[in-house]
């Protein structure tokens, strides 16, 4: 057949003996037996699923019977279609679906000339309608976007953690408690121990999550534990240090502490922070050290914060200086 002779669909009846209508299978009887067997298995599978559902609700049996039933029925249908239905090959002509040049010109003219005619005559109306619909588009976006949630507090002095990325609930003298509200005492952790702590009254709060680590066993009268970060030598107390648990990369909890190397590892993207030298990022995508929380011990041996965090915790954002 050449490219230039498209055939119209024939309306003349063809004989049942036409080779195009014969099955693809060399042994149609065998193919039919295969398809029939598959469909019987499928039927039995569905019966099995029905029984399973009522007597046991066992997931594996349900999957085996339902899935097996569908698989077998599907194989039967495919075998029927592939091996037993008219093998063809059949052909269909493609027709150009693009319009003629004249039709295209007419369409263009309808838009350009008719539209042009209307706009030319009533320029003011066109302008006003455009103005009105633009205004509508803009103001409809207000409730659609602005009503969604509160505006973020972009000032560094903001204190509401619901809206400010700068704020936490850590204040001067906040008491350290665990997620279930238990007060953390200076005797609670051995060297290498870690605990997730919150300011009392804000247990489980996301921005306040802080990881408390005991780096050394130092009594109250021993010389203070020397941190390598300048200006922060007195931020730890009796071998304890505390850092924001929120990763500076994407905010995952930096939950893995490697005692041997004194490193904190973020399980999400493997940023590694060196705890002994101010939690500076040593490896991975985190750009900044974890902010440190200055600690102290009160008269009852309870751990407290000297102050809140002195910088924004967590990942970077535009308003962060």
């Amino acid at each position: 057949m050449s490219d230039e002779s498209p055939k119209a669909p024939s309306l003349a009846p063809v004989s049942l003996e036409d080779p195009h209508l014969q099955p693809y299978a060399k042994h149609p009887g065998r193919a039919e037996a295969l398809a029939a067997a598959a469909m019987v298995i499928g039927f039995l599978g569905f019966i099995g699923f029905g029984i399973t559902y009522w007597i046991s609700d066992q997931t594996q049996w349900e999957a085996a019977t339902l899935g097996g039933g569908m698989l077998a029925l599907g194989v039967g249908a495919i075998a029927w279609g592939k091996y037993l239905m008219p093998q063809g090959p059949f052909v269909e002509e493609r027709h150009d679906f693009h319009s003629t040049e004249a039709e295209r010109d007419a369409m263009t003219a309808a838009i350009v000339e008719r539209g042009g005619m209307v706009v030319q005559r009533r320029k003011v109306l066109g302008g006003l309608f455009a103005l009105g619909s633009t205004a509508m588009g803009v103001v409809i976006a207000f409730p659609l976007i602005r009503s969604l949630g509160p505006k973020p507090a972009t000032s560094r002095q903001a204190t509401n953690t619901d809206t400010s990325l700068f704020a936490t609930n850590w204040k001067e003298n906040s008491q350290l408690v665990t997620a279930d509200g238990r007060i953390v005492k200076v005797a609670d952790l051995d060297v290498g121990g870690v605990l997730t702590v919150f300011p009392k009254g804000h247990e489980g709060s996301s921005p306040d999550q802080t990881i408390l680590i005991r780096l050394a066993q130092i009594g109250p009268d021993d010389p203070p534990f020397q941190l390598e970060s300048p200006g922060r030598t007195d931020w730890g107390v009796q071998g304890y240090v505390a850092y924001s648990k929120m990763c500076t990369h994407l905010g995952c909890p930096v939950g893995l502490y490697q005692k041997l190397t004194q490193q904190l590892v973020c399980p999400c993207h493997q940023s590694i922070f060196n705890v002994a030298s101010g939690c500076i990022p040593e490896f991975g995508p985190a750009p900044r050290p974890l902010p440190q929380l200055p600690l102290k011990v009160d008269a009852f041996g309870n751990l407290r914060s000297q102050s809140g965090y002195q910088q924004a915790i967590g990942p970077g954002f535009w308003e962060r200086p």
């Binding site: 669909p9 309306l11 063809v14 004989s15 049942l16 080779p19 209508l21 093998q87």
Partner: peptide, 22 residues
Amino acid sequence: ELEAVPVPAFIDMVPADLATGP
């Protein structure tokens, strides 16, 4: 090998000899 043909609309359901030669 068979030449591809358009799908027939009407099939002569009574088996006959191979009248319409494909």
